[in-house]
Amino acid sequence: MKGERVAQLELLLHSHPEGLRRAEIARRLGVHRSTISRYVDELKQYIDIYEENNLIKIKNREEDESIALSVYESLAFNLSAEMLASSTEFQNPHLASGLRKIAMNMRSYAPKISENVIGLAEQIDKQLQEKKESSKFNAILEVLIDSWVSGRIVRIVQSLKGFDPIETELAPYFIGFREEDSGGRNPISVTGRLRHTTEIVTIDISTITSATILNETYTIPDNLKPFKFPESEERYESIDMIPLSLKIKERSAMNVFRSVVHGTPVFEKQSDGSQICNMDVENSIELYLRIIQCGDSVEILGPESFRKKFCKLLNKILALYQ
């Protein structure tokens, strides 16, 4: 069985097909340079590696297929890679690894583009080393990907600013970018079904602080769309919407509004620990029922006309039992 450091060395060499110097390997693994030779000797028992011009490399197998892109495809790939490297909120080591592998195949026919792509990979690596939050983000992303690929449910803990952590269990269906109207942000999100329900949610992965795969399987429906987006404003034209203002005592109370058409909630934290939530919501009997379901965890602050109608409905309900 390979040790942890030897396994890390293998991953590192696979990610750098152009080879790495011993000093660079030691720096990336966080060990002394004198120990690298031992790791290399141990790794040689499992895979074919060699040293050339002071660079340690993995020997390509004959069955490994190379990617042959035209110069036009190579340039288009380079431009796309630059956009991806600059717009991704959290850099990913697997992106850097993939870029290097493709760049190595370009060296013979597009050397300058190859150098540019390798430079982008180095830029990603540098950002990963500088940002500790990227390491945590990527660790959670890998757990979600493993859960998705293996078809097993994952337990996640989500932390939203101003609220207590929320634990839930999710069956991941899709992982990818999602556009948001606010600030042009494109977070990497996971869309899936909440366990024991038919409800589909989309969660910003950067808000997840913990992810654990459970030993319970699930299947992805064939006819499912990639993402469940919030209802767009255009969808509200035929619906009677009201500018609802609520005082929220418990963050979990907001879950009951998922079945109601509403706009983006805007929260304002109060000195007593509660939250004021303002959002446009459909004016329907469903909304009344969801607020009743919250009990005393939610209080209607406005509009005043809606608050009066709600109180009138409660009095009618109470009259049935008096």
Rank of each mutant, 00 (worst) to 15 (best):
E180K: 13
I205N: 00
Q127L: 14
G192H: 02
I47C: 00
V261G: 02
P17K: 01
G295S: 02
R33P: 01
I203Q: 01
A319H: 14
S97P: 06
R152C: 04
V190E: 04
Y288W: 11
K312S: 13
D146R: 09
L128C: 06
I213G: 02
I291S: 02
P93Y: 12
R22N: 08
A319W: 14
L314K: 05
P243F: 09
Q270D: 09
L246T: 03
L160F: 12
L289K: 06
E179R: 15
K249N: 12
I36F: 07
H94R: 14
R27H: 11
G19M: 08
E167P: 08
L128V: 06
I49F: 10
A68S: 09
A76P: 03
P111E: 04
I175S: 01
L13M: 05
D272C: 09
E4Q: 08
V6F: 09
T197A: 01
S238P: 07
I67P: 00
R235N: 04
R307Q: 12
S189T: 11
A253V: 08
S97F: 08
F229V: 07
L12F: 09
L141C: 00
R21T: 13
I300Q: 03
A26C: 01
L95E: 12
G273T: 10
S238C: 08
I49G: 04
P265G: 00
I213S: 03
A81Y: 04
I153P: 00
V157Q: 07
L99T: 01
W148H: 14
N255V: 13
L313T: 11
E130I: 07
R307H: 11
I153Y: 14
E233W: 09
E234H: 06
I188D: 04
Q275M: 15
N105R: 11
N315Q: 14
Y236E: 01
G162P: 05
N255E: 10
A110I: 06
R193L: 09
N283I: 05
L43P: 01
E42P: 09
S271D: 12
E179C: 07
S34Y: 05
